[in-house]
Design a protein around this nucleic acid. Structure first.
Lengths: 225, 225
DNA sequence: GTAATACTTCAGTACAGATTTAACTATGAT
DNA sequence: ATCATAGTTAAATCTGTACTGAAGTATTAC
């Protein structure tokens, strides 16, 4: 079993493959070429690395014409990468450009639920409005919360049918605060994109907030972007 | 930030260091020499590797005379390693000796709470006896449960004072089933060791079940060892 | 049809970083 | 005081594996 673990660890341990995993963290699928650019290496090289990750079952691939789209093969992979990222020392000894933080930090998707600054802020607001309750480090939905989500246009009954966790906290490593994950977190993100509050950018590492989103985020959550 | 992630990933990605982390998974502290033996490499080499892990903050060390005891510096490290271990493909295409499974598989400590076959079985029994309740993929303690734990000799009030999570499920990768983690899980393990149901073995990768433990595990949980 | 794009395969090379050899310090045992 | 054990440090060597270059297939565009 040890050797199996070594195999996984050294797979992720290579610099090129580490960046591949890091890049795939937002849950979107990338083509081989896109990944080659993200990692700044040659197509041959990325091909070799992707083959290894594929072989180990960490990634899966979907062929579309002459393109191949790579993504994590399951949630566990994303969680493992997040867990490793959480080990990055919290120091942050004041970068040169303290305010030139990339949009990623503002609003990234943590696999498929809402994360980053916005995710944390939304969660805090939901807590403050007693829509969700924080009981002993786990989240619960309040009776008012049920009504709120229905008003917001999210059907909780549909969500409950999904096998995945309904409502769970998730420690976001870039903010070091809890935000909601699970199907509710994912559906919030979906709804915000559907209503054009947020847009995925082309290269998809980050999420942009639209003008409408800016207003609505303040209206619903008192978040100032 | 990427470079920080690469650093962590390639630290864990080296075969020797991967086994070190794997070995430390049971939460016990090991000396440098013990680790050198576990990894089967030279003292000089293990010293170099431990220095790197220490420098990155993944491990911490406690000096006792001429010995140095190494352990994970925090829970996050253990969780990250567990998360990586969960990526080991589940295949298990029928080993040669199907029943010669090592004691580790029977009963290992998952950082410091009870895991492995016994941990899962205990959890199932607690659920069946309605001592803990499984509500929407999170565990809750029932009123009867409060009494049960007090009868069992575990003071829940003391546990609640600890900052760490009181009761939470934890997917054990070797069994692929939920078992209880958090302070209750840890205290169950402590109690069982204190009452000599279980004993840590010398090299501590596994836990042995005593004769007494065998009887009591059946009496309390209907577990046949 | 031809050209261009997306990706793969294979053999040869290079190099970072692990390991070894050797000499060192510090604590504990007799 | 002497020896053994636990661990460290430094320079020399060795090696696995990533990378390069060259040549291939498959799909789309024109």
């Amino acid at each position: 079993m040890e050797d199996q673990f070594i195999k996984i660890a050294s797979l992720i341990g290579d610099p090129v493959r580490a960046i591949i995993m890091w890049t795939l963290l937002d849950g979107k699928a990338f083509t081989a070429t896109e990944l080659a650019i993200a990692v700044s290496t040659s197509p041959q090289n990325i091909s070799m690395h992707l083959a290894k990750l594929l072989d180990a079952g960490l990634l899966c691939v979907e062929k579309q014409g002459r393109h191949k789209y790579y993504r994590f093969s399951n949630k566990e992979v994303a969680y493992a990468i997040e867990a490793m990222a959480s080990l990055i020392p919290p120091e942050t000894p004041q970068k040169k450009n303290p305010e030139k933080h990339s949009p990623i930090k503002n609003c990234r998707t943590c696999y498929d639920h809402l994360a980053g600054k916005i995710g944390v802020a939304v969660t805090e607001s939901l807590l403050k409005q007693n829509i969700i309750l924080d009981s002993d480090a786990k989240f619960e939905l309040s009776p008012e919360g049920v009504k709120w989500f229905s008003d917001f246009g999210i059907n909780l009954e549909d969500l409950k049918k999904q096998r995945r966790l309904f409502l769970k906290p998730c420690l976001d490593w870039s903010e070091r605060k809890n935000h909601i994950a699970g199907s509710i977190g994912a559906s919030l993100l979906d709804k915000m994109i559907a209503d054009d509050w947020l847009r995925r950018t082309k290269d998809s590492r980050a999420i942009q907030i639209t003008g409408k989103g800016e207003k609505e985020l303040f209206r619903y959550f008192k978040i100032v972007v």
